[in-house]
Amino acid sequence: MNTSKVNIKDLKLWYGESEALHGIDIEFSEKRVTALIGPSGCGKSTLLRCLNRMNDRIPGCRIEGQILLDGDDIYAPEVDVVQLRTHVGMVFQKPNPFPKSIYENVAYAPRIHGLAGSGSDMDELVETALRRASIWKEVKDKLHTPGTALSGGQQQRLCIARTIAVQPNVILMDEPCSALDPIATAKIEELIDELKREFTIIMVTHSMQQAARISDQTAFFYMGDLIEFGETGTIFTQPEKQQTEDYITGRFG
């Protein structure tokens, strides 16, 4: 049941001269939620951004090693980054809807990738995406009002709707709840639980409790190294490595 979806092999990454990831080996299972935890600056975001090649935009950033998505190397020269990003969607730390209407926010990616024409096809697609992100009920009467006028939690769910509108396989989330209140956080967590039936989800979180609540597997990073990776239950009750233990019990630094 745990088929591997993303397979990272000896991934090293440099920002200019400084090495941010020192050879990461990790496998993310399909349709499961994996939480990446670790102290600030340990390279979680960096690793996450490798998975949809957002790091390509950073000057001086170069990688070594392999990242296989369903067995294909995503850094192979023939890979089209645009196509890759429709397979690997991303949700960011701060909700960042486009300053356009709610409808436009969701319809944008399907339109530029030619997934639906503009008539009823698109309406349907937008509705489905909003429903799956469990925000349809809240916005169905104001689809043409600005997405930026929603509350933070709603904005984040809108961003998730926007991401799943192109039917990705993998969804990357970089601290998706860090700007939200507990209720909105709970809604997103519930949503993630729903979404994992269809998507492979990899999320960075600084909340140990959150990682414990929603992830199936947890990976602990420290200073650019993967220290420990395993089932969430195990990591949070009896981690193998002292560093992991120290980190999750709050004995760090």
Binding site: M54, V82, Q83, T86, G89, F98, P99, I112
Partner: peptide, 14 residues
């Protein structure tokens, strides 16, 4: 804000 650019790139916009 660069978050807008990231959002668009993240959705596969050129």
């Amino acid at each position: 804000p660069s978050s807008i650019r990231e959002a668009a790139f993240g959705l596969g916009a050129s």
